[in-house]
């Protein structure tokens, strides 16, 4: 299973709509990085509105995607993390520090704009 990655000007837009298993998550990581390389993207928005669970593995993969993308010169914003998911992550002691977040796709794009300009 593959998660579709959309290109919008300098940005990549990804909406995760499936229950992430480990393989899909790792495949996703690779696809995002390849796409950034291919398109020379400056920013990525990953929307997690439909994701109802993030465990430590998926959190690690997401955190890694952010770090790796940064290395490749693209800023990543995570959007739409559900309250239940946020509370679970905090309970587990996973804070995803230094990862920019926004409420939804729209605000995520604004946030990217800010990050890239500022």
């Amino acid at each position: 299973m593959r998660i579709p990655i959309l290109k919008l000007h300098d940005y990549l837009l990804i909406s995760v709509q499936v229950d992430l298993d480990d393989q899909t998550a790792l495949q996703f990581q690779e696809d995002v990085l390849n796409k950034i390389h291919q398109e020379g993207s400056r920013g990525v928005v990953i929307d997690l509105t439909s994701v109802d669970m993030i465990d430590s593995f998926i959190a690690k993969v997401l955190g890694d995607v952010v770090d790796m993308s940064n290395l490749m010169g693209a800023r990543v914003v995570l959007t739409g993390i559900q309250p239940a998911v946020a509370i679970t992550l905090i309970d587990m002691g996973i804070v995803l520090e230094e990862v920019p977040t926004a409420l939804d796709l729209e605000q995520g794009l604004d946030r990217l704009q800010q990050e890239l300009e500022g």
């Binding site: 739409g80 992550l89 977040t101 409420l103 995520g108």
Partner: peptide, 12 residues
């Protein structure tokens, strides 16, 4: 502190 970290995760 936990509450504010959770708030940050949801994007505020």
């Amino acid at each position: 502190i936990q509450a504010s970290e959770a708030v940050r995760l949801v994007g505020a």
